[in-house]
Nucleic acid binder design. Structure first.
Lengths: 192, 192, 192, 192
DNA sequence: GATGAATGAGAATTCATTCAT
DNA sequence: CATGAATGAATTCTCATTCAT
């Protein structure tokens, strides 16, 4: 692991536990085992490393990769598709640090213009793309498809957010979620 | 508005826009139009006002009041009930500042023990209570009821979170969400 | 106990335990059970109450009263006289708070001109007067008499100062001290 | 002189003249010619430098070294021994700053637990060791030996304390003090 | 006399950033 | 590339003092 990676790794760990603003550059370099000055060889300012770590933790990272690599033909139906997305989501956030950082990112993004813009862009893209995919499987109004997809995402995020409030295994949670959503559609509309 | 309220009001506004850690006590008192020392007359430390504002913004504030004041008899079915909860939710967060603060709170809570504990407690209670209410309306497995309620909450939160990513009117969003969830139930089980 | 006395009493207690500079006016009024503004009705500034309490605690208070009220004729010899002074000293400092305050006073006096001057004046007077009295009892050089008297005072003060370092009963300490000092004189010079 | 030494040196000077609590970190760094942040590179908090300076000024520093380096054989009698200790004492406090700081330390120690404990420990040790040494020279009761040693120390401290109240040269003071104490012993007991 | 809210100067402490080695 | 001492602006927090009621 080179110096830059060591710094990113330490920053990620520390940011996850205390939030971006409560971690000092001192703590990062101490944890990474490098000198203070070294930090500034790799990152012009603290904000730079925040931005980099924040981007890693966005859920769109996990899902937009998925969008790129797979297409409609790979799945029998919406259920299989959502199940697949959900698994990828949980895979990404099996790294608990990323989940924490994601929540910090949501909080901080408004203070970092570039991050805010990126976030909005990725988020819009994800919703649009997700909605489009849903519509490939089922024949419903676009609005409803969008709400369905946003509900899917929201449910997954809420699971992360409330994981320690009520313990359900994530596989079980996902299975139930997929059933709820597909049940709703399958019976009211005709599956394509 | 007395001094304490002025401080809370200014703090809420500023916290919403920049996050707890990026607002200084100086900014708060300047906005509130009082002297620096006055702040410490009402809040022993900055963390105290953070805690107080954070608690105001928790979604459980909005919903737990609802739980207390209404019961099953008031509603014809699950749909009406969720619609009612959703309206209360959006009413609470029609104050956009509260929504912003909520996201900051999720981020910061891990650094403030008392807040973390309170959050977990309220969150657990809300999930438990919400699940119980769902079961009063429909005859499904408890696990599924819980996922359904968490999905409902998650969807609402995700709406707040991604409001500026894709514009759907919140009434329309809620209506679609309720339909998705109730449709799912109505078609797979017998409504009570 | 009137308000002024209540304030002095509380100040004395608090000053004793934490030193003048580490006690706030707030703490004093809280302990005295009066309002903050009331303090300033009785003392123009914090320094005024410090000065007043400091003066109460000076060892010269205890001893100079003694000087005024008694004279040579009342005592058979130097031993009796020193024993009497020592008893008065311990009587005064049986109030442990006064002893603590005395040490704080020694420390702070240089920062409060009026206190420093008063202290030096009282201290000089005490040494001069003490030396004169010793010379009424024994026929020794003036220098030696002064050292003897200062040694007597120093020993008493050192007792207070190191009371919790090695436990000797104060009566026993005084008795031994008087014996050491008188033994030295009686055998080398002729008692008057 | 490195930065840390510069800070200690400045602190010592300022503490001596105004007491620990009336000297600000700002004054120290200004006097030392370094930036404010630099102070906190060497001392975690102001109390740390107070503690360090306070320890330097304790009389036990001066005397306990003496105890280690010399033994009974080096001296003909108690007088020589006390004379030697006294000289070391005055040597140590020829640095007037140390004397001032010592009095501040006595005042402040009760507010700094670690300092209070250290002080008590060193003080007890000094009294115990001093008493033991006295008993090597003369054949008197242990209690009396302890009072004699504490009187010796007290007299020296009182000299420092009242130096500007009555001017006696410190050599002359010491000589008279030693005579008073040894005379007392020689006349009442047999020297070993 | 008594009150206590309000003040603001001032003190301690933090921390991102620079730079000479 | 790497270092870590030095910086100083920014921040939190304290507290003696005032003053309108």
């Amino acid at each position: 692991m080179d110096t830059r990676e060591k710094l990113l790794h330490s920053a990620k760990k520390l940011f996850a536990s205390k939030g971006f603003d409560r971690v000092t550059v001192d703590e990062i370099v101490k944890d990474a085992g490098v000198a203070k000055g070294t930090f500034y060889l790799y990152f012009k300012r603290k904000e730079d490393i925040i931005r980099e770590v924040a981007i890693m933790a966005m859920p769109f990272q996990a899902l937009s990769d998925v969008f790129k690599s797979v297409d409609r033909e790979s799945f029998r139906n919406l259920g299989d598709y959502l199940r697949f997305l959900g698994e990828k989501f949980f895979e990404h956030y099996s790294d608990r640090e990323l989940a924490c950082i994601f929540f910090h990112t949501v909080s901080i993004k408004s203070s970092i213009t570039s991050l805010n813009d990126l976030h909005r862009e990725l988020c819009s893209k994800l919703i649009k793309e997700g909605t489009r995919r849903v519509l490939e499987f089922v024949n419903i109004e676009e609005k409803k498809a969008e709400v369905l997809f946003r509900t899917f995402l929201g449910s997954l995020l809420h699971y992360l957010y409330s994981e320690d409030c009520s313990p359900i295994d994530h596989k079980e949670y996902l299975e139930n979620l997929v059933q709820i959503l597909t049940n709703s559609i399958n019976n009211s509309t005709s599956s394509k």
